[in-house]
């Protein structure tokens, strides 16, 4: 099996590698893993509170080339999208873009999971922040 050119490109030049402060209220962190291969993927998003637009995305993945490429692509895609638009990204979109073979589909699943988990974390922060904000206002 050989990797597609796009996978190799993302693997050699991964976009948006790094991390952001996970305690920040604007940052959502998704940490996911696949028992099939032992991969672990961390994806973080920074969301503009007023527009709900994802302004920044970072990732760090330990895993195979396809997992790295999938998460690298995911950060590229979510940037500039609203939270709801980002939630619409499906793993099969990633499979198509990277021409992943069937045995590597779980890598794309992982990337979709990471997006959902990061958004979920961010949403949770917003909800728990509300009552605090209300108390401050009183």
């Amino acid at each position: 099996m050989s990797y597609s050119d796009k996978v190799i490109d993302h693997y050699n030049n991964p976009r948006n590698v790094g991390s952001m402060d996970k305690s920040s209220a604007d940052v959502g962190t998704g940490l996911v893993g696949a028992p099939e291969c032992g991969d672990v993927m961390k994806l973080q998003i920074k969301v503009n509170r007023d527009t709900n637009i994802i302004e920044e995305a970072k990732f760090k993945t330990f895993g195979c080339g396809s997992a790295i490429a999938s998460s690298s692509l995911a950060t590229e895609w979510v940037k500039g999208k609203t939270v709801d638009e980002a939630l619409a990204i499906k793993n099969m979109d990633i499979v198509k873009e990277l021409s992943l073979p069937p045995v590597k589909i779980h890598c794309s699943v992982l990337a979709e999971d990471a997006i959902r988990a990061a958004i979920g974390d961010w949403k949770k922060k917003q909800e728990s922040a509300k009552p605090v904000a209300a108390t401050v206002a009183q």
């Binding site: 893993g33 032992g38 672990v40 330990f62 999971d113 959902r116």
Partner: peptide, 30 residues
């Protein structure tokens, strides 16, 4: 197939995916 199935379930229900690997173990692994 379980990871894929769980993702599909999360997608259709809008719920957070049931993680196959527990979060504390993931942190440790990371």
């Amino acid at each position: 197939e379980q990871s894929k199935t769980a993702t599909e379930q999360a997608r259709s229900t809008g719920q957070l995916k049931k993680q196959i690997v527990p979060p504390d173990l993931l942190e440790e692994v990371f």
